[in-house]
Every structure is written in C-alpha cells, then in structure tokens.
Simulated assay, not measured.
Amino acid sequence: MKTLPLRRALVGAVALGAAVTLVSCSTTAGGGPAPSDAPAGEAGPRVAVSYDGGILVLDGDTLDTVGDFDSEPFTRLNPAGDGRHVLVTMSEGFQVLDTGAGSTEPAELTDTVFEADTPGHVVRHGGKTILYADGTSDTTIFDTAELADGDLPDVETIAGDEAHHGVSVLLEDGTFLTTVGNADGRSGIVVRDADGAEIASSDQCPGVHGEGTAADEVVVFGCEDGALVYKDGEITKLAAPDQPYGRMGNAYVSETSPIVVGDYKNDPDAEGYLLDAVTLIDTAALTSTVVPLPDGAEYTFRDVVRGPDDLAYILGTDGAIHVLDPASGEITDTWPVIAAWEGPADWQDPHPAIVVAGDVAYVTEPSAKSLHAVDLTTGEVRASAELDVTPNEIAPARG
C-alpha cells in the first residue's frame, strides 16, 4: 500500500474559514418554556431541520420554530459534538450553526466556515471534532469544547494523499486512522501513531465507507464484502456471509457497547436505497452476523440510531420504530409513529429520518411536513409539529 504522508499544521479557524454572510429569515428566541432544571431564560434542547433552501431551528421540547435561515438548496446537518452547535455542509465548507441550546442566545447561522473542498464526513470522538474534505482528502481537527466556549478554535490539518470520498478518526492517544483511495475507488485504511509512524494498514476493504468507534476505542470501517476492525494496534478483516458482495456502508455505534450495528446490502444490482437487514459486529469476539428485519420494516441510512441502554432504533417503511437488542439480535418492541412510506428515488430526496438526543428520538415525516418527538423509554409520542416546509436532514442539540 502506498504510504500516506503526514503533515500537520496548526492554523486558526479565521484563516481556514472564509466569511459567508447569509440572510436570516427569523431569529426569534423562545418557542416554549425551558425544562424545569434549566436556569431561567436558558433554552433547553433544540433540533435543526434542513429543507430546500433553508434550515429551521426548533425547540426540542415543544417543536416550536425559534429560527429560520436561508441556505443552499441541499445541505447536510452534522452535530458538532458540544451539544449546541451543528456543522452545515455548504459548498465552501462546514458552516457553524449555533442552535442556542443550553444558552440564553438566539439561534444563529454564523459566518464561521471551516473551509473544505467538497466537505464530507464529520466525526466526533474523544473531545475532538474531525472534518474530512473529499476534494483533497485533508482532515481538519479541533477541540470540540472550543465551539461551546464561543471561541474560534485552532485547528490541526492532516494532509491527505489522493482525493476520495473518505473519513478519518482520531483516538484519544493521538492514533490517526484514515481511508485510502482515489478517483477510481477506495481500498482500505492506514493507521498512524501520534508521531506519524505507520502502525497498520489494510487494502482489503473495497469501497470502504462508514466508520464507528465502539467500546474501548475499537474502530470499525465498512467494506463491500464485510468490515475492517482496528483493535489493539491490529486490523482484522471480517468477511460478510454473502460473497463477493455483502456491503456495510454505515456504522451505528455506542461508545459503551462493543457491538456495532451496520446497514447491510447483499445485492449490488438492487434498485433504490431501501435495505431489509442489518449486520451486527461484535468487536470483542471479532464476529459478524446478519439479521433480517420484519417484513415491511425496510429502511435507509437515515433510519438507524443507537439510544438508551445501547439499543438500536430502526425507523421502518411501515412507519414504526423497531427496537433492536444488538446483543441478542432480537426485535424487542415496535412503536407505530408515522404513516407508511416508500424509499427515495435519490438519496438526497426528503424521506423519513430519525435522530436521538438522550431518551428522545426526533422523527421526520416529509409527506406530512411534520416532525415528531418520541420517548424512547415508552414509545410515546411526546410532541408533534406540522411545518411550513418539507423536512429533509435533521440534527439534535441537547444543550
């Protein structure tokens, strides 16, 4: 495998981020009472929801709109990791949205941008936020807490080798993992220590995509024929039961669970984006198992999350949240929430999505222009709101 050069530079975010001025349609603070344990005047949780040409910020308890901002036609929303800010993928890079969660400040789409050529994945781990630029394969890293402090964070830039749709992970001891690929495809990962020396590498991961850090900082990357697991300085390839194609493309993790839940596809010629099984990767035992879902419970990459008790919550095309116990592979509960739905024609098209903040799941229902808050301890719908726009991407901020 070709060696990736490691060049690190400390650069201020002011230098990185070109100022982008966007017009705010509304920055009205409020939207319902703060939780009883929040100081007077301090906002509770918030939810950011993208739509065609804009971003809403909603009160996480009442689902009232507290901010409405112009944006590009399609934007992705990524929690920054500090419980307050969201990173919006714009054409210039990652723009900072301040939801105001847990503060007395109104929501604001700031003019701070972490510049990136074709911004891609955002990873949060160990107090760091890691940004990946597909157009250069460069990785930008900053201390997550510095956003919450209101400061412009200093960043560390790790130069990539060849541009590709990739992702990077930084462990607490400085170990750096990043994907390897080029314009023709992606083949694996390389791992380096804090000084840049190579620890391990693998080119046995065709189409590498998706990552997750499980308990004890074991990292999993998805492949078109299985997965790579980085553990204790070594990389292990876990082959999918279906060969030559058994793809895991997204990993849904809890950092207190050794089991990774991955999406799973075994037909490379299948049309559309709906899937009907998940893969369970046990990073302690180094095993993988494919679990079919109940009939009518197909899903897309937007429809799986981890929540209370390290369980997985899958929003199916039947409109229900299916509770999966990763340890047993069993569906333990099913909660109807929205109307049945069909898969999107394109992955960017609005279709139902689920995200989690604590014990609450937020579920979009684009066909009804609605958003629902669901108690994941009971399955009860706590609140619902009909929006004036069609929701697409969603990101929570707990405050």
Rank of each mutant, 00 (worst) to 15 (best):
G135V: 07
T139N: 10
S384F: 08
A18C: 10
E156S: 15
A339E: 09
T89N: 15
V11Q: 08
D68V: 03
P352H: 05
V190H: 02
N392A: 10
G93S: 10
M90N: 05
H164C: 03
E298C: 09
R76N: 13
P106C: 13
T236E: 09
A107W: 00
T236I: 03
A385R: 14
V20R: 04
F74A: 13
S50L: 04
I281W: 01
F142C: 06
Y245F: 13
K369Y: 08
G120M: 14
A101C: 06
E92N: 10
A284D: 14
D333R: 12
V218W: 00
L22P: 02
D375M: 14
F176W: 03
E217V: 12
A270N: 12
D149H: 13
L311F: 06
V374K: 04
L10D: 15
A214Q: 04
G233S: 15
P350T: 10
Y313L: 05
A38Q: 11
E342N: 12
D269K: 12
G210H: 01
A214V: 11
A163K: 11
G246C: 08
I281D: 01
S103H: 05
L275T: 01
D269M: 10
A148C: 04
V337Y: 00
V113A: 01
G166F: 01
S201D: 15
L77Y: 00
R124H: 04
H209Y: 01
A13Y: 02
H351K: 07
G60P: 00
T144M: 07
A385C: 11
P33L: 14
G135A: 09
H351P: 08
G262A: 11
D64S: 14
V305Y: 01
S50W: 02
A80L: 04
T334E: 13
K128H: 13
R382I: 15
I55A: 02
K265H: 10
A200Y: 07
F69P: 01
A239P: 01
P294F: 02
G246W: 00
R186D: 01
D68N: 15
A320M: 03
R84H: 06
V96M: 06
E42F: 07
L109M: 14
A357S: 15
A197I: 11
P35V: 09
D295E: 15
G67N: 02
Y245P: 00
T289W: 07
G54Y: 06
L16G: 04
D267Y: 02
V389E: 02
G343S: 11
G249M: 06
W347P: 02
G379S: 14
T112G: 05
D276V: 09
D111A: 13
F74Q: 07
P268E: 08
V305Q: 03
D193M: 06
L275K: 03
C25R: 15
V381S: 10
G150M: 10
Y273Q: 07
G126Y: 04
G174Q: 10
H372C: 10
N266P: 03
